[in-house]
């Protein structure tokens, strides 16, 4: 494994989308960890901090905001790309307060465009 291989954590409760994102990132040589809810994401963050987190907001039990709060409390600096289908002002402002690097609307992008956004940050 490449020493400089970037590590991206993808937190997404839709198995199909999660797999699509995993595939496209892996194809470009990224090491991908996956989580299907906020708690799983927090576990990965604790054990194997990522270089970037791709985060869905609405997830069962522990949601994306709880993950953002956890990152803030721990004063962690890895960039977060929120990847959601919510686009109301309240949600966007809340994300800005958590210092989110990018706010992506899932339905406005393809898996390839996800890589275009993430790749720019990792390079």
């Amino acid at each position: 494994m490449n020493d400089h291989q970037k590590h991206v954590l993808v937190a997404e409760d839709d198995a199909f989308l999660l797999e699509m994102i995993r595939k496209v990132l892996s194809k470009h040589g990224v090491r991908v960890s996956t989580a299907i809810n906020g708690q799983e994401a927090i576990d990965v963050i604790d054990n194997d901090p990522p270089d970037l987190l791709l985060l869905d907001l609405i997830m069962p039990n522990v949601d994306g905001f709880a993950v953002l709060q956890y990152r803030k409390n721990k004063n962690m600096k890895f960039p977060v790309f929120v990847c959601t289908n919510l686009s109301d002002k309240k949600t966007i402002i809340r994300c800005e307060e958590f210092d989110v690097a990018e706010y992506l609307i899932k339905s406005d992008m393809d898996d390839d465009q996800i890589w275009t956004s993430v790749g720019k940050y990792l390079r």
């Binding site: 839709d14 699509m20 609405i58 959601t84 289908n85 919510l86 949600t91 339905s107 393809d110 898996d111």
Partner: peptide, 17 residues
């Protein structure tokens, strides 16, 4: 509107992808 758009977009995302 926020909920309706989210509910419309979620299946649409899967279709598009």
């Amino acid at each position: 509107m926020a909920i309706a758009s989210h509910q419309l977009r979620t299946p649409l995302t899967a279709i598009r992808w």
